[in-house]
């Protein structure tokens, strides 16, 4: 297995190289640069030219790419044009928040979607199943930002159950368990908003997967053995029906670092998603490139983890 992992990791290098070329081209093809927007007349044009020179923006794109690549490969992510801080510091600052939000979202998603999906599959086309289906489609068709705004409007502004922004109560100086509860209080609304979307699609998927497995011959065999219904469900149906979720888990793991750009922006959640949003608006190339590469890497790693887990869960799948 170690050999398999090493082979897969090595295989990622050319993929990442191609992705980086594409990303760099995309980023460069946006007209203007980080200093175009500085219309402040007090800033001397000479100063801007100096800055451009300093950050290497006057070099040819190809030259710029190779300078970036050399630095990136050595773990030098550069300095943010905007706030003049090292990109690595910016990311380290934000990543914790994004992971916390993403993990909470994932947990909520699984806790809701798995029971609802199974419940639905066990009584297909009944009133309760149809109701769940209807809500799933509403959930699926609700745009994230709209859902987020609606959630803030109802639960923060009207009901005042949850704060509408931030990760902790500023200046409260909580410690220990109180600090943890305060963070949970802040994360819940954005997490649930994000989860609703994936709950909808997960529920649909789990429902059809369980329905499909219930029809399999081996499930009939299990009943023919005289196993009680509960045992058949647990041992024969669910194990097979939920296995494909491993693939989704891998994708979610990859998406974790992408953060939820819109949700983080609406909830002013200082995570990677908002960093991506801000850096894109500001054409802050070093930050943009690093964030995008981080997403690419995490998606590839997420896939690798999913493949490893799948091979562990399904004896028919071999490492090769």
């Amino acid at each position: 297995m170690v050999k398999f992992i090493i082979r897969r990791l090595l295989g990622m290098i050319p993929v990442l190289f191609v992705i980086s070329v594409l990303l760099f081209t995309l980023v460069q093809s946006v007209p203007g640069d980080a200093f175009t927007g500085d219309l402040n007349p007090k800033i001397d044009k000479k100063y801007i030219d100096e800055m451009r020179e300093k950050f290497g923006l006057n070099k040819s794109p190809v030259e710029q790419y190779f300078i970036w690549l050399k630095n990136f490969a050595q773990g030098e992510f550069g300095i943010s044009f905007k706030n003049k801080l090292p990109v690595s510091d910016l990311i380290v600052d934000r990543i914790g928040n994004t992971v916390f939000l993403a993990v909470t979202t994932l947990i909520i998603t699984y806790l809701l979607a798995i029971p609802i999906g199974i419940y639905s599959a066990n009584r297909p086309y009944t009133l309760s199943d149809n109701t769940i289906t209807t809500f799933s489609f509403i959930g699926l068709s609700l745009p994230t930002f709209f859902g987020a705004l609606l959630a803030i409007y109802i639960f923060s502004i009207n009901l005042e159950w949850f704060p509408s922004s931030g990760t902790v109560t500023a200046g409260a100086g909580y410690t220990g368990i109180q600090y943890l509860l305060d963070r949970l209080h802040h994360v819940l609304l954005p997490a649930v908003t994000l989860a609703i979307l994936s709950v909808a699609s997960y529920t649909r998927y789990i429902r059809s997967s369980v329905l499909d497995v219930k029809q399999q011959d081996y499930v009939r065999t299990a009943y023919a053995k005289g196993l009680p219904r509960k045992k058949v469900m647990r041992k024969h149906v669910l194990r097979n029906a939920l296995m494909p979720l491993i693939t989704f888990f891998g994708l979610d793991l990859g998406g974790l670092f992408a953060g939820a750009v819109l949700t983080e922006t609406v909830f002013t959640w200082p995570g990677l998603g908002r960093l991506i949003f801000e850096s894109t608006v500001n054409r802050d190339y070093p930050v943009m490139m690093t964030c995008y590469m981080l997403i690419a890497i995490s998606i590839l790693i997420g896939n690798l983890i999913a493949d490893i887990l799948y091979a562990k869960a399904d004896p028919r799948v071999r490492y090769d």
Binding site: Q216, D217, Y218, T221, A222, A224, A313, P315
Partner: peptide, 14 residues
């Protein structure tokens, strides 16, 4: 009872 399809009558993951 035994069934027609031996290929699918056993659970693939057990």
């Amino acid at each position: 009872m035994i069934f027609q399809e031996p290929m699918t009558s056993l659970n693939p993951v057990l």
